[in-house]
Write a protein that binds this DNA or RNA. Sequence first.
DNA 1: GCCGTTTTTACAAAATCTTTACAACTCCGC
DNA 2: GCGGAGTTGTAAAGATTTTGTAAAAACGGC
Lengths: 126, 126
Amino acid sequence: MELAPTFVNSSESYRDAHLEVDFGHKTVVLDAGHLVLTRKEFELLAMLVQHAGDIIPRETLLQRVWGYSREIRTRTLDVHIRRLRRKLGAYSGQYIETIFGIGYRFQPFRSARHLQPRLSQFAIGA
Amino acid sequence: MELAPTFVNSSESYRDAHLEVDFGHKTVVLDAGHLVLTRKEFELLAMLVQHAGDIIPRETLLQRVWGYSREIRTRTLDVHIRRLRRKLGAYSGQYIETIFGIGYRFQPFRSARHLQPRLSQFAIGA
DNA sequence: GCCGTTTTTACAAAATCTTTACAACTCCGC
DNA sequence: GCGGAGTTGTAAAGATTTTGTAAAAACGGC
């Protein structure tokens, strides 16, 4: 058997010096250790990682990860971002940045770097 | 059933340090001991083993092992998983993992897991 | 009918997600 | 610099969803 099991998404993945995200197998490896993320945490991370470098508005994240209920005015998103950051440990600051008033942005790992100016460009479609 | 006709690729099998599954003859050996599984138990195990390393959604298991009755909202699958685990004894934890909210995954035997920086083992629960 | 297997049922337990209540922080005009 | 309005960060509690189990009922072949 083996013919392309439908449940195995073609394994695309993201990878940099410390982090590896396999979208198909839904696995995350951080510095050789497997990270255990919950479903929402993974979806959120995947969403950010797949648009690395782009700012993703809170609203877009809420729509895509939480369905179209753009009616969540609680801190749900923040709470998930927080858990994600905690699991990313020491690298969290490097990877997930908060774009005040807009949303979040995942940045691929880079050795030495400082924060960018401010208000930037492209945000993925809302 | 049984008589595994020759046209059945009876040579196909899975094997690791402790477990051996012969798909053609539908036999299972665990640490030199012959495991007796019922038909459903075997099919379930086979399904998982043949896709070792991949997460198989509950729905997929229900479809392939139980026919197309997609939405069985009973605990049938869980009950079978439980019996399988029981028969796998001490290795059950190592072999069959639950991917919360999605399904299950069979993981080939891995010798000691010492060399790991930040613990955690498997993948996301997505 | 008997017996081994499979499915249901009915809860218990566990894992995850959301809400709440504040604290902390940013931005911006004064 | 200061202060206020608005935004994000956190911890903890509350809800909800999903999975685990045990026991009993339902099947099916002999």
